[in-house]
Amino acid sequence: MTKEQIRETVFRVLGQIAPEANLNHLKPDRSIRDQMDLDSMDLLNFVVGLHKELQVEIPESDYPKLSTLNGCFDYLASRKNAA
């Protein structure tokens, strides 16, 4: 799976959680949660969405690695391509 596909998936899932947000304004190295004002239920739905789209198991202890966009891309690429 290419980095571009992972990127698209992440944006699609975020878009489902917060349809009103402008994702183009997100800074890739800052907390997604802070920038989009997400709560724990949103974050859970984010992880569930990634799991459904990419079929990767994401243990709870790895949630911190998903806190920024860059973190998401790296983590998901390593999980997806290792599988």
């Binding site: 724990s40 239920m41 859970l44 992880v47 569930v48 799991h51 198991e57 994401i58 243990p59 709870e60």
Partner: peptide, 17 residues
């Protein structure tokens, strides 16, 4: 909760709330 969520797939996890 941590122990419980370890056993659960993403969809079935609980939040402390």
């Amino acid at each position: 909760l941590t122990g419980e969520n370890l056993k659960r797939s993403v969809e079935d996890r609980l939040v402390y709330g």
